[in-house]
C-alpha cells in the first residue's frame, strides 16, 4: 500500500475510478472498432485524455495536502489565463491584469494558511475594490464598465469559485469519523465529472427535446434529467464512503451537483458563444482547454462547499 496522507477509502475510490476508465475505454474501443475509428476520433481522444487527467489529479491529491493545494492554484492560473486570453481587454489595463494574476497565489495561500475569513473576503471585497481603483486611476473611461466587469467576473469564477475546492482539503477532521477533506473533494469532483459524462450519454441515448438551444444546441431535456437523476442516485451510494452526509443530505447534494454542473457548463458555453469561439483552449485533446473541462466545477465547488460548511463544519 502506498504511504499517503489521505484515508484509505479515498485511495480505494481512485482505484474504482480506474476500473471505470477501463470499462469506458473498452466500450469506446468497441464503438470505434475497425472502419468506424475515423468517425469517433474525438471520442477516443476524449477517453485518452481522461486517463491523463485522472492520473494527474490522483497524483496531486494523494501526494500531500500542500501539493493538492498547489495543484488547484495551478489549475486556477491556467483557467484564468485561458479566460483573459479569450475576453476583450484594454491596452490601458495591462498592468491591472498583472494584479489580477497575483490574486491566484494569494488566495491559495489563505487556503493553505486555513485563514477562513480572509479566504472569504479577499476576492469579493479587497481584490474587486483594488482592481476597480487601479483601473479608474488610469483615467481611461472608454469601455470602463465592460472592462471592470470582465475582470471582476474572471477573478470571482476562475480564482474565488475554484479555490473553494482547495478549501475542502483543509476543513477540520471530524472526530470519530473517517471522512476527511480529501474525501469531500473527491466526492464533488467525481460526481461533477460523472454528471457531465452522464448528461452526455443520456442525451446520446434518449435525447430529443433541446433544453437551451440558443446556448448549447446539443443539450437535451432527456440528457439533463437522466444525468441529474443518475448523479443524485450515485451521490446516495458514494456519500457514506467519502463524506459524513446523512442520506437525505446526500440526495440534496447530488441534486445540487447535477443542476449546478449543468448551469456551470452552459454558462461557459454562453461566454464562448458570445465571443465566437468553440473551445477555450487546446491543452486537453478531445475536450478543449482547461476551462472547457472545469466549467461545471466553477458552480458545483462553491455550492457543495457552503452546503457542507452550513450543515457539518
Amino acid at each position: 500500500m502506498i504511504d499517503t496522507w489521505v484515508p484509505p477509502q479515498v485511495a480505494r475510490t481512485f482505484a474504482g475510478v480506474v476500473g471505470l476508465l477501463v470499462v469506458a475505454s473498452a466500450i469506446v474501443g468497441w464503438i470505434a472498432r475497425g472502419e468506424r475509428a475515423a468517425r469517433h476520433g474525438e471520442l477516443v481522444a476524449r477517453v485518452k485524455s481522461w486517463w491523463i487527467m485522472v492520473a494527474v489529479f490522483a497524483t496531486a491529491i494523494l501526494l500531500s495536502q500542500t501539493g493538492a493545494i498547489v495543484f488547484f492554484a495551478l489549475l486556477s492560473f491556467l483557467a484564468l489565463k485561458e479566460y483573459l486570453s479569450l475576453v476583450p481587454t484594454r491596452r490601458a489595463d495591462r498592468r491591472v491584469l498583472f494584479w489580477v494574476y497575483l490574486t491566484v497565489p494569494l488566495q491559495f495561500w489563505w487556503v493553505h494558511d486555513r485563514w477562513y475569513n480572509m479566504f472569504l473576503v479577499f476576492i469579493p471585497v479587497w481584490a474587486v475594490l483594488f482592481v476597480a481603483s487601479r483601473m479608474v486611476l488610469r483615467g481611461e473611461t472608454r469601455d470602463f464598465l465592460r472592462a471592470v466587469g470582465i475582470l471582476h467576473w474572471g477573478m470571482l469564477t476562475m480564482v474565488f469559485a475554484l479555490s473553494h475546492l482547495a478549501y475542502l482539503l483543509v476543513l477540520p477532521e471530524k472526530q470519530g469519523d473517517m471522512a476527511s477533506g480529501a474525501g469531500l473533494l473527491l466526492f464533488v469532483v467525481l460526481l461533477t465529472q460523472l454528471n457531465d459524462v452522464l448528461q452526455f450519454v443520456w442525451g446520446k441515448l434518449l435525447g430529443k427535446r433541446p433544453v437551451l438551444p440558443t446556448v448549447s444546441p446539443k443539450k437535451t431535456v432527456e440528457g439533463l434529467v437522466g444525468g441529474v437523476l443518475t448523479t443524485t442516485a450515485l451521490a446516495y451510494v458514494i456519500a457514506p464512503v467519502l463524506t459524513p452526509l446523512s442520506p437525505p443530505h446526500a440526495l440534496a447534494a447530488g441534486l445540487m451537483i447535477g443542476l449546478g454542473g449543468f448551469i456551470g457548463d452552459v454558462t461557459i458555453s454562453a461566454l464562448k458563444r458570445d465571443l465566437g469561439v468553440k473551445d477555450a483552449g487546446t491543452l486537453i485533446p478531445g475536450h478543449g482547454g482547461v476551462l472547457d473541462r472545469i466549467d461545471s466545477l466553477l458552480f458545483t465547488g462553491p455550492v457543495f462547499f457552503h452546503f457542507m460548511k452550513y450543515f457539518y463544519y
Binding site: K81, E82, L84, S85, R94, R95, F98, Y101, G281
Partner: peptide, 12 residues
C-alpha cells in the same frame, strides 16, 4: 511583453 515595458503578463 510589449516594447517599453518590463512586466510580463501571461497570455496564450
Amino acid at each position: 511583453l510589449p516594447r517599453g515595458d518590463w512586466v510580463l503578463v501571461p497570455f496564450f
